[in-house]
Amino acid sequence: MKLELIDISKKYGDFYALKDMNVTLENGVYGLLGANGAGKTTLLNILIGVLKQSSGRILLDGKDVKKMDVAYLDKIGYLPQYPKFYPNFQIGEFLDYMCCLKGIAAKKRKERISDVIEQVNLTEHRKKKIGELSGGMRQRLGIAQAILNDPEILVLDEPTAGLDPGERIRFRNIISRLSKNRMVLIATHIVPDVECIANEILILHNGLLVKKGNVEELCGAVGNTVWEVTASDKQAEELKDRYLLANMKREGNKISMRIISEEKPSEAAEAVKPQLEDVFLSVFRK
């Protein structure tokens, strides 16, 4: 399966929320990174067909998705940002409703619901009302509804926002399991959430796709620009003003700093292996 985005732009007046996006996506997990307002949700909304692009085309295996109409929707599963669903619905009832909406045959619904509930570890909570679920359970329910129709494209908007570390890990594992034979697109601004599960990262900045590649490629492209240095308070103040700071940690009387810079920030600085977060920061500094 191949999803091609060709010259996709979205304009509001003179403002481009998304500009000339050209990318081809295939099976695997894609992390869509960007700060708030970078255009992630705009891109996702265009992808899922609830927002019309100002220009450009989307092709799925060579076919224009506009012409595919609902046949395209059949291939999509979507989880929005902070979903609340219907608090007075039970989990099973909600998923049955989603089955109806997704056109899943009545005979297969029961089996399909049991299957997805099991996949997201909610079987024992099936009779619970959605209003009684924790944030993590609700997100898992969101995944369950998204995969009901066994979609080829799974679109997740900020899926881990507001989750505790345990739930985030659990969530990541579920995504990894689901990514077999399908395309998973995760939009987030939380770098660690995609770092370990994404096959490829797309970084958006001010509506433009500024970087694309796997974690190694992106980190490699940053090259020797990430430094670690231990400095006194006074030196730390100076370095902080002059360089882009990725991290800062007090260690006794000294401060350990992680700096992103083309030049070596100080004699004592040591080049370290860049991480995705450093790539992210370096993009946004520009």
Partner: peptide
């Protein structure tokens, strides 16, 4: 709209129509 259901429904085959 607030609960995010609108977009979920609109991305479902029968929801859109």
């Amino acid at each position: 709209r607030k609960s995010g259901m609108e977009h979920i429904i609109l991305t479902a085959k029968r929801g859109k129509r």
